[in-house]
Design a protein around this nucleic acid. Structure first.
Lengths: 230, 230
DNA sequence: AACTTAAATTACTCGTCAGTAAATTAATGA
DNA sequence: TCATTAATTTACTGACGAGTAATTTAAGTT
């Protein structure tokens, strides 16, 4: 029950002595809103960490609050409730993967190259606390409304992968395959990283991704086998 | 709260009228033990189903008991406690995968062929209720003793895959690769099936496995690309 | 028939934890 | 200075659910 730094972090924005109290109220309002948002995200981050460490159901809101040196009702003040908290963690994870798509999609020449970059970013995201939540949060723990939003977001990522696969088949950089099942296989392999990756691993996420990509691109069969002359 | 058939299934072993009550007590004892085992496994199966349907934490032991038309204390009579129940589900799942290894390991000619058969059986197992438990049961929900046994069993499966990969590299049926990461990728893709496979799917487990195996064997890059050096 | 053991039930305890009401303190604004 | 709103706490409720004690019913055993 170690009390980490409190949310009320005066030290971060010290009231500079020389400054007149309220030059423009707009600036103050913006700063206050930003502060509020920072506290909110601090709670969400703490939750993600705790969920990953102990699992969603073994983490109480008291735990989450204590992790940032605050009491439970504040969680309700900043985030709605426990489900909402999990949902926010989930969304943050999804956002990271979306970012991977964004940066990769405008970059490569062939679709396969773009896919490879997406997968690298994907792996990076999965190894974080939010990635863990994204992958292992159970829709079962969310009520109908949130659950369907989660499914929607997951589906968008899935569709993004399929689109890249189809584009690759189109431009000839990817062998003909079932895009749906292939996307499932690829995403599954990556998502599963969240099950075994524990902080101090021998390989960095990028290295893991590289090996996975090697498998996905070239397969297991040796070159000699490709021409099928046995 | 529909009361399914009770555990006390007299109808299954009707007391035949003509039979003398106890020809050999050994037979009766064996039959009683078998009955007991049947009830025990019925509970475990019901638990696996419920866990898959609602998640471990959203399933009460009352639910499990009610599912077989019985009351909670009986669960404690036949199985130890909730953790134990989950653990048993887990073990049953592991057993199915072990069986896949057993039947495949004596069959194929090359290691790659054996691996492919293991993967097919693996996929079959994963789509069941026990497979779900095996894949999604959190060690976090088990105390130290059970958790480490679970890790042990998981590790054995992992080692089995790596051994096959190494054997394949040895006998030339598998391209040189990092066995550890490759096993993680392959197992991850398959395990992930438990996250999206919901009873009535377009493809049978065997078909899913076939597509996954296609990807793992040949990769995404088209043949034309294989000879090209980058 | 009397005794022992197992099977199964009812009716509880006890801890945990999500969620809330009400009070308090600090900040903002007029 | 006074009023209003946000930030934060204390102290609670209420439910659910794991696990148990005590009891009853049934089944073998001698």
């Amino acid at each position: 029950m170690l009390k980490t730094r409190s949310l009320t972090a005066k030290s971060v924005t010290p009231p500079r002595r020389g400054r007149p109290p309220s030059l423009s109220p707009w600036r103050d309002v913006a700063a206050r809103d930003a502060e509020r948002e920072r506290k909110r995200t601090a709670l969400i981050r703490a939750a993600a960490q705790a969920f990953r460490a102990n699992g969603f159901h073994n983490t109480s809101l008291d735990d989450v609050a204590a992790a940032v040196g605050v009491t439970k009702p504040l969680v309700y003040h900043y985030v709605g409730n426990k489900q909402q908290l999990l949902f926010e963690c989930f969304c943050t994870g999804v956002e990271q993967i979306r970012a991977a798509f964004k940066t990769a999609e405008h970059s490569g020449t062939t679709a396969r190259e773009r896919l490879v970059r997406v997968l690298a970013g994907y792996a990076e995201a999965i190894t974080g606390d939010f990635g863990w939540c994204m992958v292992r949060a159970e829709d079962l723990d969310l009520d109908a409304a949130l659950s369907s939003r989660v499914k929607q977001l997951k589906s968008e990522i899935d569709q993004g992968l399929r689109r890249l696969l189809r584009a690759g088949i189109e431009d000839g950089s990817i062998r003909g395959c079932d895009p749906k099942m292939t996307a499932f296989a690829v995403a599954g392999a990556l998502n599963w990283i969240a099950h075994w990756h524990r902080g101090r691993e021998a390989l960095t996420p990028a290295e893991i991704a590289a090996r996975f990509i090697d498998l996905f691109e070239l397969g297991l069969a040796p070159r000699a086998d490709r021409s099928r002359r046995r």
